[in-house]
Nucleic acid binder design. Structure first.
Lengths: 337, 337
DNA sequence: TTGTACGCGTTATCAT
DNA sequence: ATGATAACGCGTACAA
C-alpha cells in the first residue's frame, strides 16, 4: 500500500488540508504543527503522488521534446542540456524521435497532449502549420530550438546559420584558399540547408572569388556517409580545390575518409572545415577545425525559456547564440608557404 | 477548456460509464451506442486524459531509465532501442543521467517513484543494495541492462564481457600477433572493467603466450582521452607490441590518434581492435575492427522484458546476447606476409 | 490556525 | 445494455 496524505494527517492528528499547506508553503499553520507534521512525513517516508497532484494542478512537471531525423551525436549534447536543466527544475522530459515524419510527429504531439506536458521544445525542423495549430489548441508554451518560424511568432534559440557558414568560409579564405568547395546538407532544408549555402556563397562573393553552384554538392542529409559519397563527385568536378567547407562535422569526417581513400592528404593537399563541433571533431586524423555551436548551452537556454513561459505565463525573447571557429589541424594556412 | 469524457457523454446522450466502457473495450454496450459515441468522440476530437487514468489504474505508461556516466555515444543506440520500443507500446520514457553518483541516483529513483513509473531499466552499473531496496519498496519491476547482479535476483540483458574480450584477443592472436597489449577501463568496474581484462588474460594464457599485468594499462574510464593518454605509457613499457585490444571504441580511436602523433602507422606497425561497434568505428582512419555488441537490440529486449513483467506481473528470463567481431581495417594479418 | 467538503478526469462497482 | 456513484490522491475555497 502506498502511503498517502491521509496517513500523514491521521498520524499527526491534523487534517489533510494542513498537511497540504505545509507541503506547499501555503500560509496557515503554526510552527508547532509544522514540526509535528514534518516529523511524521519523515517517519513515514511520505512523498506526494505527482500524478494526483498533476490532475488537479494542471502541471505535470513534464516537458516534451520533438527531435527530427538528424545526427544523434549532434542532438546528444542538446538533449543533455535540456535534460539537466529540466531535472534541476524538478521536472522530467519525454523525448520523441519524429524521424522527420509528419504522421509520427502528430502522433507524438497527441501523446504529449495526453500526458499533459507543461511545454514543448520543437527542434531542428520546420514548424508546419499542422503542428502549430495542434500545439496552439493545447494551450501550452512552445519554444523552437535550432529552427525558426517565419509564419508564426514563436520564441526560438539558434545560431545564425548563414552567418556561421559565412564565418567558416571566410576563415578558409583568410588562410589563403581560393578554390573552395562546399558539401551541404539538403538544400531544401530551410533551416540548416539553404542558409549555410547562402553563407558560403555570400562569403565567396564578398571576397570577389568566382563561384558557381557547381561548387556546392549535396546529398540528402548531414551524415558521414553523405560526406563519403559527395566528396568524390565534388573533387572530380573541381580537381583544383584546395579546401572544403562541410555543412556538418560528420560530413567533414566523411570527406576526410574519402580523401584518404583517394590518397589525398589532409590538410597538406586539401583543407577541411566542419560545422557543429561535436565530440568526434577531436577524434579524427587530423583533428577537425570547425565552427562550433554551443549545443549544450542552447538546450539549456531553450529549457529555461520554456520554464519561464510556464511559470510566468507570458512569452519570452528569442536568443541567437554566437558561433566560433575552433582551430584544430584540418586546415592548412597557405599564407605560410 | 479541455474536453472530457463528460462532454462526450452529454453530447452522445449516454452516461460517462458507457463512454468509458467503449473506450476500454469492456463489454456492456450495443453496436448502436458504440457507433454513436465513436462519432461524437471523433467530432469533438476527444482523447482521454492519461493523468486521470493513471491516478486510478496505477499505470502511468511511463518507464524510467537510469544511466551512469559513460560514453553518450554508446548509450545512444541503447536508448534508441528503449525509446522506440517503449513508444510502440504506447508508453514513454524518462531518462535519468545519474553520473554514477549515488546521491543523484537516489534522487532520480525518488523522482521515478513520485512519477509512478511502471518499471525501471537500470543500466551499465553495479546495482547497489540501497538502490535495490528502494525499488523493492516501490513494488515495480526492474531489469538490468549491460550489468548483472550477483547479490539480487533480477533479470538482466547483457553480453558476456569476458567472453567478448576473449574473442577480441583471440582474433588478434589468430591474425598472428603475439605481443599484445590491452587498454582497459577502470579495473574496479565489476561489469565492464575486470571481466574484459580477465577475458584478455584468459585468451593469452590459453594460447600460451606469456603476459604480465603490465600488458594491461588502464585509465579511469572508456573515453577517447583515456585512450589518448594510456597509449604512450603502454607503448613505452612495451615497444615491441604489434597489437592492442582496447576496451572500448572510443579508447581505440584515442589509441589510433596517439599512434598517429607518434608516427606509428595503423595497421602497418600496430594493429588495433576495439569493443562496442558504435557509429564512430567506421569513421576512423583506418576504419576500426571491433567486437560488436547489439546495442539497439539489447535496449529493445530489455524494454520488452519490462513490459512483460508489467503486464503479466511475473518475472522473466535473462538474456545474454552474442557478440561478433566486425572486420574493418585496423588489424593487420601477420600470417599473410 | 485549522478542518470540511468539493473537484480534477477517469475507472470500477453496483444497481437498474 | 446502461446509469449513478464511489474511489484514486491531492489542492483549495469556504467555514469555523
Amino acid at each position: 500500500m502506498t502511503i498517502t496524505i491521509k496517513d500523514v494527517a491521521k498520524k499527526a492528528n491534523v487534517s489533510i488540508a494542513t498537511v497540504s499547506r505545509i507541503l506547499n508553503n501555503k500560509p496557515g499553520y503554526s510552527k508547532e504543527t509544522e514540526k509535528k507534521v514534518l516529523e511524521v512525513i519523515d517517519e513515514l517516508g511520505y512523498h506526494p503522488n505527482s500524478i494526483a497532484r498533476g490532475l488537479i494542478s494542471k502541471r505535470t512537471h513534464t516537458i516534451g521534446v520533438l527531435l527530427p531525423k538528424i545526427s544523434s551525436m549532434l542532438m546528444n549534447e542538446v538533449i543533455r542540456g535540456i535534460e539537466d536543466t529540466t531535472h534541476q527544475n524538478g521536472s522530467s522530459v519525454i523525448v520523441c524521435h519524429t524521424e522527420s515524419n509528419g504522421q509520427k510527429t502528430m502522433q507524438y504531439l497527441q501523446l504529449l497532449k495526453d500526458k499533459q506536458v507543461d511545454g514543448i521544445i520543437f527542434t531542428s525542423e520546420r514548424l508546419k502549420e499542422e503542428y502549430y495549430q495542434f500545439v496552439k489548441k493545447m494551450e501550452k508554451p512552445m519554444v523552437l530550438l535550432s529552427t525558426e518560424s517565419y509564419d508564426f511568432s514563436i520564441p526560438f534559440v539558434k545560431v545564425n546559420d548563414q552567418h556561421a557558414a559565412y564565418t567558416a568560409t571566410e576563415y578558409l579564405i583568410k588562410k589563403g584558399h581560393r578554390n573552395i568547395g562546399m558539401i551541404s546538407g539538403n538544400p531544401e532544408d530551410q533551416v540548416a540547408g539553404q542558409p549555410r549555402i547562402n553563407g558560403f556563397l555570400q562569403a565567396m562573393n564578398n571576397y570577389q572569388i568566382p563561384v558557381s553552384h557547381e561548387h556546392v554538392v549535396s546529398e540528402d542529409g548531414f551524415s558521414f556517409e553523405d560526406g563519403l559519397k559527395a566528396f568524390p563527385r565534388l573533387i572530380r568536378q573541381h580537381p583544383d580545390l584546395t579546401a572544403i567547407f562541410a555543412a556538418s562535422d560528420e560530413i567533414a569526417l566523411g570527406v576526410i575518409s574519402a580523401a584518404y581513400e583517394m590518397n589525398i592528404k589532409v590538410p597538406d593537399q586539401l583543407s577541411v572545415i566542419g560545422y557543429d563541433n561535436i565530440n568526434i571533431a577531436q577524434m579524427s586524423i587530423p583533428p577537425l577545425t570547425t565552427v562550433a555551436q554551443p549545443l549544450y548551452d542552447m538546450g539549456e537556454k531553450a529549457t529555461e525559456m520554456i520554464f519561464e513561459m510556464i511559470e510566468k505565463n507570458q512569452t519570452v525573447e528569442s536568443r541567437i547564440f554566437s558561433h566560433q571557429v575552433v582551430e584544430r589541424k584540418s586546415v592548412k594556412d597557405l599564407n605560410k608557404e
